[in-house]
Design a protein around this nucleic acid. Structure first.
Length: 291
DNA sequence: CTGGGCTCCTGTCAGC
DNA sequence: TGCTGACAGGAGCCCA
């Protein structure tokens, strides 16, 4: 589910509540995609920093604090938490964060819970493709390994039509497959890649190295426009997605092609087609989108 | 190195 | 009503 807009909406909805919150306890449920990589109890006492986003990952910095829950002898100082680093969080296909109050009717799918003095943060993830991974720094250890291969942020000034064009020239896969790979530009998943290609008037089957400079420019603009509109609408809620306060997104109602197979194109009334590319559904208008 | 396919897991829905 | 198969927002990993 969660593509860049959903992850960004999630980030914004938890940032204020988590900042400066002191971790009291960490509870784990069923295994997620990867292990936490650290004993949960060693995180008690850490203080949450400003949560950041990189692609579809969230990075929650944790600074060293004092573990007040740890038993210690009278007269001796409270045991300092040994942890300093952060948590890299990915929502996978079906994940959502919830902050403050217990999520409703999700009990079997609560697989991670950060108990803090400002409220609790839950990861609800039925399919468990999501992950919460400890890393000593965002640019070291497991986080560096997972973030290392990512492409540019779509709103980074370096992500230009020229950059996209040059990157697409180096590939021979279909342009939609190249966008989904996430090593050129991050954030556009299956929904937004389809929508951006529609907005740019490009057939998703077009070989990436056949995209000219002008169309690459249009595609870069369309990716940014599609993603920013989706963020403004609170993301897309197809099934599971909610922000941390339980609010659903509204972009799904604005989708021009995604999930609209057989329905008339909003621009030309030609039936929207569904095909499969790299094991993922692709939706497009065969008339508005050209090779 | 590139590209294609498989895989993790649960839930939902269409069709019989 | 109940069973079966297809499909779902991601992306790392293995193989040719």
């Amino acid at each position: 589910m969660p593509e860049l807009p959903e992850v960004e909406v999630t980030r914004r909805s938890v940032a204020g509540g988590l900042l400066d919150a002191r971790v009291l306890e960490v509870r784990m449920g069923l295994p997620l995609r990867w292990p936490l990589g650290r004993e949960p109890h060693t995180l008690a006492g850490c203080v949450c920093g400003d949560i950041a986003r990189r692609g579809k990952y969230l990075w929650l910095p944790l600074s060293r604090g004092v573990d007040e829950s740890t038993e210690h002898l009278p007269g001796l100082p409270a045991k300092a938490s040994t942890a300093a680093g952060g948590l890299l969080i990915h929502l996978g296909m079906s994940g959502a964060l919830s902050f403050g109050q217990a999520p409703l009717q999700r009990a079997p799918h609560e697989h991670f819970r950060l108990v803090t003095d400002r409220g609790d943060l839950w990861l609800i993830d039925p399919r468990r493709f999501g992950a919460v991974v400890w890393s000593t720094a965002v640019d070291a250890g497991p986080a560096a390994r997972l973030l290392g291969g990512l492409g540019l942020e779509p709103f980074d000034a370096a992500f230009t039509g020229a950059h996209l064009h040059a990157a697409l020239q180096r590939r021979r896969v279909a342009v939609k497959t190249a966008l989904l790979a996430g090593d050129i530009v991050v954030g556009a998943g299956n929904i937004y890649a389809c929508e951006a290609l529609f907005a740019a008037g490009i057939d998703p089957r077009t070989r990436s190295d056949a995209i000219g400079r002008l169309r690459a420019e249009r595609l870069a603009t369309a990716i940014r426009a599609t993603l920013s509109k989706a963020v403004a609408l609170g993301g897309s809620t197809l099934r599971d997605f909610r922000d941390a306060h339980g609010l659903a997104g509204a972009f799904q109602a604005e989708a021009a092609v995604y999930g609209r197979a057989g329905l008339p194109c909003l621009a030309c009334a030609t039936p929207i087609r569904r095909i499969v590319q790299a094991q993922r559904s692709t939706f497009f208008c065969p008339r508005c989108q050209r090779r």
